[in-house]
Structures are given as C-alpha cells and as structure tokens.
Design a protein around this nucleic acid. Sequence first.
RNA 1: GGUGCUAUCGUCUAGUGGCCUAGGACAACGGCCUCUCACGCCGUAAACCCCGGUUCGAGUCCGGGUAGCACUACCA
Length: 509
Amino acid sequence: MSRRVRVRFAPSPTGALHIGGVRTALYNYLFARQHGGDMLLRIEDTDSTRFVPGAEAYIIEALDWLGIHIDEGISMDAPNGKGLHGPYRQSERREIYHQYVNQLLESGHAYYAFDTPQELETKRQSVANFQYDARTRMEMTNSLTLSKQEVKERIERGDQYVVRFLVQPNEDVVVHDLIRGDVTISSNILDDKVLYKSADDLPTYHLANIVDDHLMEVSHVIRGEEWLPSAPLHVLLYRAFGWEDTMPEFAHLPLLLKPDGNGKLSKRDGDRLGFPVFPLEFHNQKDGSVSSGYRESGYYPEAVINFLALLGWHNTGDQEMFTMNELIEQFSLDRVSKSGAKFDFEKGKWFNHQYLQLRSDEQLAEEFMPILNEKGITADKALVAQICGLMKDRVNFVSELWEQVSFFFVAPSEYDEKSVKKRWKEDSRQHMTELIEVLKGVDDWTSETLDATVLPWIESKEYGLGVVMNAFRICLVGAARGPHIWSITDILGKNETIYRVENAIKVLN
RNA sequence: GGUGCUAUCGUCUAGUGGCCUAGGACAACGGCCUCUCACGCCGUAAACCCCGGUUCGAGUCCGGGUAGCACUACCA
C-alpha cells in the first residue's frame, strides 16, 4: 500500500509523438508529481521494422518543451538514461528478456511455435475468425504438437520461431481499473499472444512491457484505452511470473477523437482541418513527410498543457486556467472521464490567447522582434513593447501580430475597400485637408493636446466626430480598425501622421 | 463477426437520488462600451440517446435496446 509511486511513459519511436500520447505523458507526470513519485521515460522499440530515426530525440525534446520532466530513464540531460533500472531502451534489454522468456517456457506458461506467417495467413483465410488459442493450438506447428526431439532440431537448425503465451481457457480475468472499475473478460477470447520472435531476437510489446514494469518497480500503469482489451493478458502474465502481489494498478485513459465525424484523432485530421496534432514540427526521415507542430504554430507550452489537461479531466468547479502546479495539486485519476473527447482546437486557440495576455509587453516584444526583422523592419524594443501592449488583446498568437500592427511601421499603400466605402464620405477629402492644417498647428504632440485641439475643432465645424475620426483612421491605418487614434498618432509622430493624411488625400478622391 | 469500453448543450465538461425550471467554458448570435476593429462586460439560443424498472422522487441506481469508440498482428 505504501509503495512508492512510480509511473512511466513508454512510447515507441515510430514517428512524431501524437498529441494523445502527450496527454498520456502529462497525466502520468501529474500523478507522479502529486504523489512525490517518479516519472520514467522508457523507449519501446521492440519493433525494429517500424523504427524511425530521430523519433526518440523528438520525444525527449517535445516533453522538455512542454515542461514534462523525466526523473528516470531517457531524458534531456541523460540521453542514454539515468537511474538504477536501466537500460531504458527495450532494444538494449535483450539479455534480460531471454531470461524471462525461458522462465515462462520452463514453467509451461509458454511454448514454441514454428508456423510461418504464410501458414498463419492461409489458416486465417480458410478458418473464419481464426484465433491461435486453446481450440486451435493443437492443430498448429508448435512444441505442443511436435516431439521434443523435433523442436530441438528445428531450433538448432535455425528455423525461425516465436514463443507464445499459453492461455488457459474458461477463466474470468478481472482487471481492476482506477478509472473504470472492474473489467472482466473471459480467457476464452484471448489468443496465445506472441511473446518473443526469434527473427529479430526481441520480445513483443506484451512481454517486454510486463517484465520492464516489474523490474522498474512501476506502481501505476496509466495508458490509453486502446490497451484495455489486452490488460487481461497482462494480468495473466503477471500471474504466470508469480508477480501478482506487486502488479501495478491500471488506469486506462479515454481516447482523443476527431473534431468532426467519428473515430480516433489522426495525423490526417490535422492536415485536413488545419491544426497540428504533434507538439513539435517533425521531419520524418523515413518517408520524407513533414508534420506541423504546436510549437512552430506559435502555441505556448502552458496553453497546450492547459488545453490537454482539460481534455478528459476536470475538477469540480468552474476553473479553466491551470498552471502546471495547480494541475499537479488538483489532478486525480478518479476525475478522469470515461468517454472519449473530441479534439476541439478552437478552445486551444482560446487558451493561447489567454496565456498571451498574461505575457508582459517586453516578453512579447522579444518574441515579436524576429518576425519584424524578417519583414525587414528594425525598431526600438521599447517601441515594439509599447505596440505589443496596445495590440495583444486582439491576437491569439504572436505570429498574428504583424497583420495587426504593420501599419505602425509601414504607411498604407492601399486602402481597405470596405472601410473606404463605409467611412470615407464625400466631405472627407475636405475634412482631411483642413485637419492637416489643424495638426500642423499642434506643437505639443501628445494625446492630451491633440484631444484638446482636434475635438473642439470638429465640434466648432459641426463635421461630426465619427465622420472625421474614421476618415482620419483610414488615412493612418488604411482600414477601419486599430486602437484609439491618439495611440496611433503618438507612435507615428507628427510628420508621419501628416504625411499619411496627405497621401490618403492623393490616393482617395 | 466476436469481446470490451462509453453515452449531459455543436465541442470540452459540472452534476455521485431531492440544491437541476441541469451550472461553467469554447464556438455561435444579440446588446453595451465606442472615432473604427478588437478586448471586456451583459444577455440569447443550445443538452440529460431510447424504452422499461426501483423509489414518495432519477440526469444520477438497475435491466434491455440503440449508437459511438477501441481491440481482435511475429505493431505498439
């Protein structure tokens, strides 16, 4: 009961880390931190055919970016793993697995099978709903049907084989799930899963997973719901090894679903609907594909974390904004939803907007400067900060800032048609011509003085405040948008302001 | 097909038998603010999958349907 909490995130390096995987990592992390336990990162690379170069480094970088820190295993500061239970890459644990495969073989919980992939395929074709189990295993080519001598010969001869788990029929296996309660499955529907393949001298997921979780003293297995159907097999494996008393507790998380339609969220949904499904941009060296990432799309890690945390978990109460520390404090497995969550990226944008508002103007300026430089603009940082402060409430991303603030740096070269149609009246030209003279007369170029000069002028002429100001705005911005007009003139300065009005008069008639 | 899981506004969810004429957030819509656009504020519309049962009383418990999802590989 008082076992130290140790959880693991155990991805396969088969490509970019899916956003669902990120959430699994996050929940594991929150749980570990809350209980003062350990968060391990283990790489499950037992399928040599699906290995993608760079994927492991990607996973590490992604978790680091998100602020999900690894206590043990592969991590940013220990690429080869830190901790007492290594190695933390399954491909480097071959020797360990041998021992446990043999244990199962010797205790009669597993057996050799020599059926070739072709033979199995043929069998599946000819027998409806074929499954390698108690009903069929005696019809197959394995150490249960072959003589001891022949099995020995085949192995010595170098025939390829697999080791299968022997599932006893007619037994109800109960998986206790922290989120779903007891799930009972009959062993009759389980097949004799392959535990080890001689072809690449590696175990399959199931064996490696159980052995590693046991050896690494994992206390809680928090993973996606797609694993629930194989959980009974895992329970049986713990039992076969005699490790049932230290078997971890299970919690199967609901899946992340497509925003529209049905089914599990996939990479294609992101491409189709225009949002990332990966934390970082990923260049797949295997197939040459490039996948967009949240980081490169301008999301803040805090926003991604907050958004993800609430996709499948919610506390009582109405709180929406959570820092990582608040999540650590408040998270609990029994408040995780049981049903899948559709991935609504609109809310993700809102979260980013919230976190962007929380940034200081100086921070935003720092983030925005490179974009300005790209546009060929050099500006004083204090000025950029001032502009950011003025305009940040209307963007979700720093990258959206440019289209909002460009008029501060570049005089309008064209004027928004709709705005002109609505706000540039017949008299506007006359008004602006007069306004130029009024502006020229202002020596103290401040909001206060301009306000005290221009407004009375408009009033005395009875031109209408809105009529003049909106036309003025079009001159300065090129459209009917932007902050308070004196905020604009303040930044533009007297000469530029007058120049823009003159220019607009020339272009607009 | 088989097995399992799940089921509250369009979406994420609150709700653990009476506080529910079902609450919050995103999105939508309307209004206020106002020199414009945003922000903000206020408001509107919007849901308990269906049928039974238990109970004085059910969104909440039970059963059955239905639907969705997952799994069903020498992938993880």
